[in-house]
Structures are given as structure tokens and as C-alpha cells.
Design a protein around this nucleic acid. Sequence first.
DNA 1: GTGATGTC
DNA 2: GACATCACT
Length: 326
Amino acid sequence: MGNADLRSLASLEDVPFEELSDSVVAVDAHNWLYRYLTTTVRFTSDEKYTTSDGTEVANLIGVVQGLPKFFEHDLTPVFVFDGGVTELKDDEVEQRREAREAREEKLEAARERGDSKAVARLDSQTQRLTDTILTTTREVLRLLDVPVVDAPAEGEAQAAHMARQNVVDYVGTEDYDALLLGAPLTLRQLTSSGDPELMDFQATLDHHGITWEQLVDAAILMGTDFNPGIDGVGPKTAIKLVKEHGDLWGALDARDAHVEHGDRIRELFLDPAVTDDYDLDLAVNPDLDAAREYVTGEWEVDEGEVARAFEHIEASVVQTGLDDWA
DNA sequence: GTGATGTC
DNA sequence: GACATCACT
């Protein structure tokens, strides 16, 4: 789709952190983790997060440095982890695997010619959420008593579902697909400096005078993670087509075009696999000593890299008062 | 991934 | 208005 295409349809506004106080955010854990992981790898020398047996746990630095952002603004995060991969996405997964292998070859070449700038850039692109990264992230979240939910499939879909059920106030992700999943209010840029950006689902529909189904149909016409999209159809044309012809099928007929598995792609956004079977305890009582020991002791992360972050966590939790988390 | 820029 | 490319993160 070229995510910029969906962005141009979305109702967005910057919102100061102060206005988000005391709310709960269902964070797309993989999306969030990946952002901190790539930043950590780019700006931190690898010996700071490499164990004596060579395992890289840059995620532990990223997680510990990223969490204070929530606590300091009285936001309670609920990290929603992905379950299985959607079947339709197999082609996409395969393409990504090939792209990754291509990058790894480039990375090796850059290392050989001593191009440190290229190495740093490619290094961050080749990061993956390995089993070690996922399990150590979950363990540090457990020690810090941060709520975690396991999605049956896509974490983003589960997060959107929880927001639709009013279990949480916001979905936190950079991904514009949250809009297609019907997440009422999505916070973007929770990982960057500056104020978050609020993406409003209903305002988006109202602005274009379309239904949720029509928004999804427009996105399919532009192209999604699951289909390439119709040539020559961008945001403007897509909205025009769904309004003129009612839905995806009408629009495709009018263009004499075809989308493979169009009906199933629609369902992935309108009716994704989600669950109501999860335990959510929003009271956060972190065991800071245990978390510190886990990160710097067990996983040998450089203490200097995380000392300040742990102080921030401690200060924000003490300042808020543990009772406020209950 | 995002924004800017240029071409059709 | 769509899309390709580039610089930067």
C-alpha cells in the first residue's frame, strides 16, 4: 500500500502526553520492540549487550529504556504479543526472508570493505525478533509486572479488539493497519521523542463519508500487506471508487480488475482472529531489583546502559504511588 | 518507515 | 494524482 497512502486518508492530530494521563494502551509488542531494538543496535556498541557466549540481547536495553515513557506519563501499557502467522501472509513472509538474506549478504560485503557506516545501517535492518529476544523481553516485563496478553494471531488485531471492547483506551502502534482493524483511537510515535500522534477511526470514516467496510475496500484497492493493489489507484481514486460503486466488488468491476482472495483479505481486517480469553491485572508492582539482576546479571548487559533507565522506572513508580496503579 | 522531490 | 527515487532514522 505504501503506508503513506493510508496515512493520507487518516484523521490524525498531535496530542500532548498530559492528555493521556491515567489511560491504558494496548501496545503492539512486536512493533514496539522492533523500534527499540533497531535504535539500540544503531547507537550502542554491541559489547554492551552481548553475553559471554555471544548472544545479543539489545532488546533488554531497549525495553528498559522504553518503559519509563509510559510510567512517567501515567500511562499503563498492556503488551500484546503475536501468536501464529496468518496463512495468507506466507508469500509476504517469504519475500521478507529473501530480502533479509539479500541484506545479510550486503552486510557481509560492507564488513569486508570496512564501511562502518554501511555496516551500522545494514545491521539495524537485519535485526529480527529471535526466540531469545522474545522470551527475555517477556521475562523482564513479568519481573516489572507489566501486563501482557497473547494474541491468537496478529497482536495488532487483538489490541484493536480490546480497544473496541473498551478494555483499553488506546492501541499503540506505528502501523496504519490499526485503522483497518477498527481500532477506535490509535497512538503513534510512542517510541519517538515529542508528542504522540492520535489516529481517530470514526473521524476518518466521517471525513470521507464512508463505512468501515468501504475503508477496508479502499485499502485493498490501494494494496495491503496481503495484495498488491490496482495499478494507478492511490488514496484519492480508491475513495472515489468505493463511494461510486459501493464496495470492493463494484469498484473492481468498474476497473475490470481482480484481487486474489479479496473476500478473505477483507475478513482479516473486519473479523480477524482475536480472543476474550486473557487475564489482565493493571496493577503494576515492579520488582526492580529482580529485573536489574536479570538484565545486568543473568544476561550480562552493561550496567551503565540501563542504570539511568531503571532509575527512571523507579522514580516514576514511586512518584505515582503504587496504589495509583491498582 | 518517512518526507522531499521530480517525472509522467 | 500516482509513483519512483533518494536521504535520513
